[in-house]
């Protein structure tokens, strides 16, 4: 493209400092082959990320090896990052355009990283603090929210976990036997996944940092006092007053 102010010898009053030379650069036209190759690589990586997830499931179910949670996340996020970089560089043309655009985007990612870092820092140290506070948490329901979409005078108020409320309602409606039949069909299997997720077992414990174990759990409801022992030993904290049924008043 032509810039009328590029001749340096002649003084140009529209461009007295001769900046024209810095700002003009032809638009880069990416070759069609490059675009097609990038699309191919992106599709291939989609196959890889699905394959990796299936492979991890296969390891866990067939070989009975429990992979740590971060393996799943790390592999999937690494592949996604590579894909995102390709899109940014070749489809969004960061490789060819003004570097200031890349700088803007990287600073944005830096802000995101800080955001996530401090959140995770807080989360991962919750367990160290909460045993002290644990006896202040009381199992007392969820304060009467309305169930389902209904509002107004005929809305049903519930003070249990919604999961428990709707399960018990269904059991009353169709009977336990029918409920079990339906559950066998509806839970896990029809929709792609054949992997039944497991909760904590005697051999493996999925930690749930920050709350008294099983306090609000629908599957393994635990009394307030009994959760303490697990917490105390886990973090080596002070033994909690397990016999004290009444929460301490502050």
């Amino acid at each position: 493209m032509s810039t009328p102010h590029s001749t340096a010898e002649v003084f140009n009053e529209l461009d007295p400092h001769g900046f024209g030379g810095y700002t003009k650069h032809a638009h880069h036209v990416v070759s069609g082959t490059v675009l097609k190759v990038i699309l191919g690589i992106l599709l291939a990586f989609t196959v890889v990320t699905v394959g990796a997830a299936q492979f991890e499931k296969w390891i866990e179910t067939s070989l009975a090896i429990q992979l740590p949670h971060w393996v799943n996340v790390f592999i999937a996020m690494s592949i996604a990052t590579v894909k995102a970089t390709l899109v940014l560089m070749y489809f969004m043309l960061l490789r060819y355009s003004n570097p200031i655009n890349t700088i803007v985007f990287l600073f944005c990612l830096l802000a995101f990283a800080l955001f996530l870092f401090f959140t995770l820092l807080d989360l991962s140290t919750r367990g160290a603090i909460n045993p002290i506070k644990a006896h202040q948490v009381e199992a007392g329901g969820i304060g009467g929210i309305t169930a389902g979409w209904r509002t107004g005078p005929d809305a049903i108020l519930i003070s249990q976990a919604p999961v428990v409320f709707w399960r018990e309602r269904k059991i009353t409606e169709v009977g336990q036997k029918r409920f079990d039949e339906m559950k066998a069909i509806l839970s896990h299997g029809g929709h792609g996944s054949t992997h039944a997720p497991e909760g904590s077992t005697g051999n493996r414990s999925l930690n749930r940092p920050g709350l008294t174990e099983g306090l609000f759990s629908a599957t393994a409801p635990a009394a307030h006092g009994s959760g303490h022992d697990a917490h105390g030993s886990e973090h080596g904290a002070q033994p909690a007053p397990a016999h004290n049924a009444e929460p301490a008043k502050h």
Binding site: A161, P162, W166, R167, M182, L186, G199, A218, T219
Partner: peptide, 21 residues
Amino acid sequence: VEGYGGKAPGQFFSYAFSEDA
């Protein structure tokens, strides 16, 4: 499909066969 629906967010949730609170 009887019993399949109700997998709605938050307080609108009404699926009866859930396995986690």
